[in-house]
Design a protein around this nucleic acid. Structure first.
Lengths: 215, 215
DNA sequence: AACATATGTTAGCAATAGTAACATAGTTAG
DNA sequence: CTAACTATGTTACTATTGCTAACATATGTT
């Protein structure tokens, strides 16, 4: 059961080509953008021939999708970690989730774009969507705590979606350089906090019971 | 592939190859996505050889950028038209601009994504940004009217940006199929109106003069 | 040791972006 | 009108790329 380490000792078998290709792909995509990404480059980086990847991925698309899937999972972890630094179920913890979201987008803009693009993932859309939903669950649970709801009720969904929309839009505008589109630059942290306050039902509007409010 | 020649007047010179290539590119990009778009396909559609486009566009990128640029301009016209159907400077006219925005995204998702992607436009980013700014101006002017401001003041910029963010995010979530991510589907019209009301300074907070409020 | 399986290689194909050399049409100067 | 000029098209070609096929080597099971 002894696992071979990642070594160039044995010329032929690579050890963990699958993993290294994903890493190589992520790095290359982040460096030159997904359009310029080529399977050949990834192979050069991993030090294998151009045919090797097809033992692990059915196509270039498939590898790219793997990068996106992995990104969505990491985003969820990021959000959870950020939220954990604040009292649970508060505006602060919810805004922290938003900051994690935008922060990820700015840190890995190309991956981020891939994560929310359905086009390159044909055939695995449902799978990717599922991973994305898991990450969205971090926000949903936090909003549920804020609203005092027991579980993911309609009220929780209704309150969460505008928040998602806002940070999602802010993320894209950020990575596409639209924050300095006027001579009045936008402050990301302020934007998130302010939008969270405005979009969430105010504390005064909250019922203490689990009554669902109608619009 | 459907081979649809538009004209066959003179055998050699084409008449308006530039325009027809942009049209062909837009159609193909909208049909199969920008990744699958090939110069060759556009040539087939326009009925010319694969070398012909390079008399009009320096590269494939350049043609794609033209599609994006054109899209941004058309978006601005759409927004203006929508706003004009409502009393100017009201929440209604502002929400109408948002509806035009999301509606464009849904109608031409691939083009929309290109319009806000800086990556494929290297070398012409400033130019594309300028066209985008002109279209953004439609919203800015409408918000200025709502606030009773004389021109695009800081208050106008501060109030407009969250609105842009919101419809931008809603657009992307829509075209990426995230509206039905839970079993509680989102209503786009409602979302826009509600977010506009929440994010704009309420009528009660507004000064009647042209005083700029400070934060 | 022998086989089966997983994983790597080299060779090659078809499609594509882009270039070079050449051809033809429309425009303008004489 | 014709000749030259310019704009715009063509065919022929190259390099790169995604991917497949046939073959080679390592690993693990019996």
């Amino acid at each position: 059961m002894a696992k071979k380490k990642i070594q160039k000792k044995t010329a032929y078998h690579h050890g963990d080509l699958h993993g290294q290709l994903v890493t190589a792909a992520r790095e290359l995509i982040e460096k030159h953008g997904p359009d310029s990404f080529s399977m050949s480059d990834a192979c050069r980086l991993a030090g294998v021939s151009t045919a090797a990847p097809y033992r692990h991925f059915s196509s270039k698309q498939d590898l790219v999708t793997e990068v996106a899937r992995d990104g969505l999972a990491r985003l969820g972890i990021d959000m959870e970690n950020h939220a954990a630094h604040h009292p649970r179920g508060t505006i602060e913890s919810i805004a922290a989730i938003g900051r994690a979201y935008v922060s990820f987008a700015i840190r890995e803009p190309h991956t981020f774009r891939l994560m929310f693009s359905t086009e390159p993932h044909s055939g695995r859309i449902a799978e990717v969507k599922q991973v994305g939903m898991n990450s969205y669950g971090v926000l949903l649970r936090e909003v549920a705590r804020y609203l005092g709801e027991d579980g993911i009720t309609d009220a929780v969904l209704r309150a969460s979606f505008p928040l998602w929309t806002q940070v999602h839009g802010l993320s894209f505008l950020s990575i596409d350089g639209k924050l300095e589109v006027t001579d009045f630059p936008v402050d990301i942290e302020d934007s998130i906090l302010l939008a969270t306050e405005r979009l969430l039902p105010a504390a005064s509007e909250l019922q203490t019971g689990e009554t669902t409010q109608k619009t």
